[in-house]
Each structure stands twice: as structure tokens, then as C-alpha cells.
Simulated assay, not measured.
Amino acid sequence: MIVGNGDVPQGAAAAIDAADLVIRFNDCRSVGKGGTRTDIVAVCNTGRPALSMLGGGRWKTSDAVRQAREIWSVRSGAKFAALRAELAKTHPDLDDFCDDYTAGFEAFAHATGRRHRMIPVETHERLDRDLARFASAPYVVPSSGLVVIADVLSEFVQPGDDVVLAGFGHSGWEWHPFAAERRYVDALVAEGRLRRLGQPQPSDFSQGA
């Protein structure tokens, strides 16, 4: 179960908490209506979101983060460092967007007995190529949610696994390519590689339907 920070269907909590694995994002705003179980927290490890999570202590002591056994950093520090010069010209307001706080999340994970994992930069680069197929408008980076979806499908899924999404409204920050991301996810759903919560499992479809 991959649970974004958007709206989740009514009654979703029980289904989410019953999953074998639950991945949430950043400040885990999905907790509550979207259940409580949290095995992995995937974080934006650059820029203001990262600085906010690592500072002050509220993120570190939240119930979701306390129960998570792994912290995943979504953004490659090297890739974002390479973006800095171009963004300074095209998006000068994003002057701290590429600041890398991966070391802080790694240190936090180590100090609290959790695993820290860096999502491979190749996942992000492959997404950039794939999104071009969906008439993507100019954007800065894919959303963390989409990076994690692509990573799970390429690195972890085994035959017979049921990968389910909840809390993905494909809207938010203006410089994520949300329209293309929706089409990308819809294509994966059509291929039977994942489903949105509330849709039947692939085995429940009538043959030929």
C-alpha cells in the first residue's frame, strides 16, 4: 500500500492497515482517515520540506515516524546539485530547492535503529523519459509519490503482489508534472501493474471485461 497525502476513500483505514507493507510520505498527513500503520516513510530530502522535518523534532517524534522501520530518501543529492545552476536561471525563487539534507535523515535513521535507503538516481531519470510519453508540460522534478511508485515497481514487486495506491489526487505543487503523472499512473493501472484503492484486484475482473 502506497499512501499519498491526498484524500483517501471513506472507510480506507482498515484496508490500509491490513496491508503487508504501508509506505507514507514526509509528514504522513494520511494518518488518521488513511489508517495508522506505517512501515516506511519516504521523504523529500532536499530543500525546505527536508529542513522542516529535521528541525524542531515534531516530525521525528510523530507516531508514524516512530513506528516506521525504514526511511527512504527520494532525491539524489548529486542529481539535484547538477540542477542548481539551471534552476538559478529558470526558477530563482527555488534558491534552496537543491540543498541536500540526506546526511541528516541518514543520521536520524542510524541513531534510532532504522534502515536508511537512497532511491537510485536511475529511477528519477527513467521517470523523466517515461513522462515525456504523456505530453508533459515543463516541470522541475516528478513528485516524490511518483518516484516511489516507479521505484517499488522496478525494485521490489514480485509476481502475484498487489500494489495499491491511496491518497493520490495528482495535484499540488505547480512545478510537479501532475497531469502527466496521472496519465502515467492510469497507464500502469490499465497494464495491471497496480490499482487504486477501491478498484477490484486483478483476479476479480471477469475474463474479457
Score class of each variant (00 low, 15 high):
Val22His: 04
Arg114Glu: 05
Arg69Tyr: 07
Ala12Trp: 00
Trp175Asp: 10
Ala18Asp: 07
Val8Lys: 01
Ala135Tyr: 03
Cys28Asp: 09
Asn26Leu: 10
Ala19Gln: 06
Ser30Met: 14
Ala135Trp: 02
Ala179Gln: 07
Asp63Pro: 04
Ile119Gly: 01
Ala82Asn: 01
Met1Asn: 03
Thr112Glu: 10
Phe108Met: 10
Arg48Cys: 10
Arg182Ser: 08
Ala103Val: 09
Gly167Tyr: 01
Arg29Leu: 15
Ala179Asn: 05
Ala15Trp: 01
Arg29Trp: 11
Glu181Gln: 13
Ile23Gly: 12
Gln67Lys: 12
Pro92Phe: 04
Glu181Met: 15
Pro159Gln: 06
Asp151Gly: 07
Ala132Lys: 14
Pro92Lys: 04
Asp17Lys: 09
Arg24Pro: 04
Gln67Val: 13
Val41Pro: 02
Pro202Gln: 15
Pro142Asn: 05
Ser52Trp: 04
His110Gln: 12
Thr90Tyr: 06
Phe97Cys: 06
Ala135Gln: 08
Ala103Ile: 07
Leu54Lys: 10
Val148Asn: 08
Asp93Pro: 00
Pro120His: 03
Cys98Lys: 03
Ile2Pro: 02
Ser73Cys: 15
Phe25Leu: 14
Val164Lys: 02
Val185Met: 08
Val152Glu: 11
Asp93Trp: 03
Ala109Leu: 02
Asp161Ala: 15
Leu54Gly: 09
Phe134Trp: 05
Ser206Tyr: 06
Asp39Trp: 12
Arg196His: 14
Ala180Ile: 07
Phe105Gly: 02
Val3Tyr: 00
Asp96Trp: 04
Met53Trp: 05
Ala85Lys: 06
Thr112Val: 07
Arg48Asp: 14
Ser62Trp: 07
Ile16Leu: 11
Ala50Arg: 02
Arg126Tyr: 00
Gln199Arg: 14
Trp175Leu: 15
Leu165Gly: 07
His110Arg: 13
Arg69Val: 12
Pro159Met: 09
Pro202Tyr: 15
Arg37Pro: 05
Leu54Asn: 08
Ala68Met: 04
Leu131Pro: 03
Arg69Thr: 13
Ser143Val: 12
Val74Phe: 03
Ala19Ile: 13
Ala103Ser: 11
Val163Ile: 14
Gly47Tyr: 05
Val189Lys: 08
Ser143Ile: 08
Pro49Gly: 12
Ala137Gly: 01
Gly11Ala: 10
Ala179Trp: 00
Arg126Glu: 05
Pro159Val: 09
Arg66Glu: 13
Ala18Ser: 12
Asp186Glu: 14
Ala82Arg: 02
Leu54Arg: 11
Leu131Lys: 00
Asp93His: 07
Ile40Lys: 13
Val74Leu: 12
Leu197Asp: 01
Leu146Lys: 05
Ala111Glu: 11
Arg183Ala: 15
Arg117Gln: 05
Ala179Cys: 02
Glu125Met: 10
Gly35Ala: 13
Gln201Glu: 14
Ser76Cys: 09
Ala166Ile: 04
Cys98Asn: 03
Ala209Lys: 10
Val141Cys: 13
Ala64Arg: 03
Cys98Val: 06
Trp59Val: 07
Ser62Lys: 10
Asp27Phe: 14
Pro142Trp: 00
Ala14Thr: 08
Val121Gly: 09
Arg115Ile: 14
Arg196Ile: 15
Val157Lys: 15
His176Gly: 08
Gln201Ile: 11
Asp95Pro: 00
Asn26Glu: 11
Gly34Trp: 02
His116Pro: 03
Gly208Cys: 10
